[in-house]
Amino acid sequence: MNWDKAMGLPSKSYKCGHCGESLSSAQGYLSKGSRNGQNVTDGYIYVCHSCKKPTFFDVYEGTQTPGPVIGNPVKHIPDADVEQLFNEAKSCYSISAYTSSVMCCRKLLMNISVAEGAKAGKGFADYVNYLNDNNYIPPNGKKWVDSIRKLGNEANHKIEFRTKEEAERILVFTEMLLRFIYEMSGIMMETESPETPTETE
Rank of each mutant, 00 (worst) to 15 (best):
C51P: 08
K53G: 04
P54T: 15
T55Y: 05
F56Y: 15
F57K: 01
D58Y: 08
Y60R: 07
E61V: 05
E61L: 15
G62R: 03
T63L: 10
Q64L: 07
T65V: 05
T65W: 14
P66F: 01
P66N: 03
G67R: 00
V69D: 00
V69R: 12
V69Q: 11
V69K: 12
G71S: 08
G71Y: 00
P73S: 10
V74P: 02
V74H: 03
I77R: 02
I77P: 03
P78R: 02
P78H: 05
A80T: 12
D81K: 08
D81M: 08
V82P: 07
V82K: 01
E83C: 03
Q84Y: 09
Q84D: 15
L85P: 03
L85N: 11
L85G: 06
N87G: 09
E88G: 08
A89D: 02
K90W: 00
K90D: 02
K90G: 02
C92N: 13
Y93F: 15
S94N: 08
S94G: 13
S94Y: 03
S94C: 10
Y98K: 09
Y98G: 09
T99C: 06
S101N: 06
S101F: 03
M103W: 04
C104N: 11
C104W: 03
C105P: 01
C105E: 00
R106W: 08
R106C: 06
R106H: 10
